[in-house]
């Protein structure tokens, strides 16, 4: 299908998009093959505490003698999971609510729009903080809460998309043909209008990873998993003399967020080629 190859071509022609994709694939391999890549188990304690980077421990060890490199590699699993599940949930809710709101219109749309607006003005991080504090420090909760609080931006994009697509002739013809509203929304509107939401979601993955890291840093992360935020939290007290225990997880967090922002950029460019090459028509 020409549309797809064109899309891929435009995406890859963006330098950011290409860089983001390569960085993402590297990270994905790291997460998938973590047990193979990591020389130690992330939870293995040794007597070699807070030792600087060396041949045996490329990123050094932390205060319990755990290998920082192995922990960073395993942390990628948690970060990517949190990012994808939370942003995926956010996209799913956003797309469905946005499409319904835009298609049905009227009072329903006005109520949803008001909810979206108030969510967008609300300092969501504090909401997440409270919910996690109340319901417990479990990775599943954290992902759910991030997903459930970040959908409004997706819903707003999808709503705008829906409003423009539903005025297109093919949707009107579908109505005249007797297709039900549910069918129209799921077979015509969402598949045609969801691409900008996907681009936004790529950026949201970075955001979700950062949120999880922030929660862990504040001591509200899931205690049973190895995450970059938690590593940074653990290393706080030693950072003046064991920089490696805090710098490496920090660098990886930043790289991951940048990766998804690059991917988002690439997707934007593939979606709206006009923005970047105005003269080339």
């Amino acid at each position: 299908m020409r549309f797809r190859t064109d899309f891929a071509k435009r995406y890859l022609s963006s330098r950011y998009g290409l860089a983001g994709l390569i960085m993402f694939l590297t990270m994905l391999i790291m997460a998938l093959f973590a047990p193979v890549i990591a020389p130690y188990k992330p939870t293995d304690i040794s007597h070699d505490m807070l030792s600087p980077p060396s041949k045996v421990h490329p990123f050094g060890t932390d205060h319990l003698g755990r290998d920082v490199f192995s922990r960073v590699v395993h942390g990628a699993r948690v970060s990517l999971t949190v990012g994808f599940v939370a942003a995926g949930l956010s996209a799913l809710i956003g797309i469905v609510i946005g499409a319904l709101s835009g298609y049905i219109g009227g009072v329903f749309d006005e109520v949803i729009s008001k909810i979206i607006d108030s969510f967008l003005m609300f300092p969501v991080f504090f909401l997440i903080l409270i919910i996690v504090a109340v319901f417990g420090r479990n990775l599943v909760y954290i992902m759910l809460v991030i997903g459930l609080t970040t959908w409004p931006s997706n819903a707003r994009i999808m709503r705008a998309q829906t409003m423009s697509i539903k005025e297109k002739a093919f949707v009107k013809i579908a109505r005249a043909n007797g297709e039900s509203p549910t069918r129209i929304i799921f077979t015509h509107i969402i598949p045609n209008g969801m691409y900008p939401v996907v681009a936004n979601s790529a950026m949201q993955i970075g955001g979700a990873i950062l949120t999880e890291a922030a929660l862990s840093f504040l001591g509200l992360g899931d205690p049973s998993v190895v995450s970059w935020g938690k590593m940074i939290n653990d290393a706080r007290s030693y950072m003046s003399f064991a920089w490696w225990s805090i710098v490496f997880p920090g660098i990886f967090t930043v790289i991951t967020v940048v990766t998804f922002s690059f991917i988002g950029d690439g997707l934007q460019q593939a979606l709206y080629p006009k923005l970047s090459e105005v003269r080339n028509e």
Binding site: K168, A169, F170, K172, I173, A174, A176, N177, H188
Partner: peptide
């Protein structure tokens, strides 16, 4: 049934 002006917009 109905047919519209713009054939390019008439198909998903």
């Amino acid at each position: 049934q109905i047919i519209f002006q713009n054939p390019y917009e008439s198909f998903d």
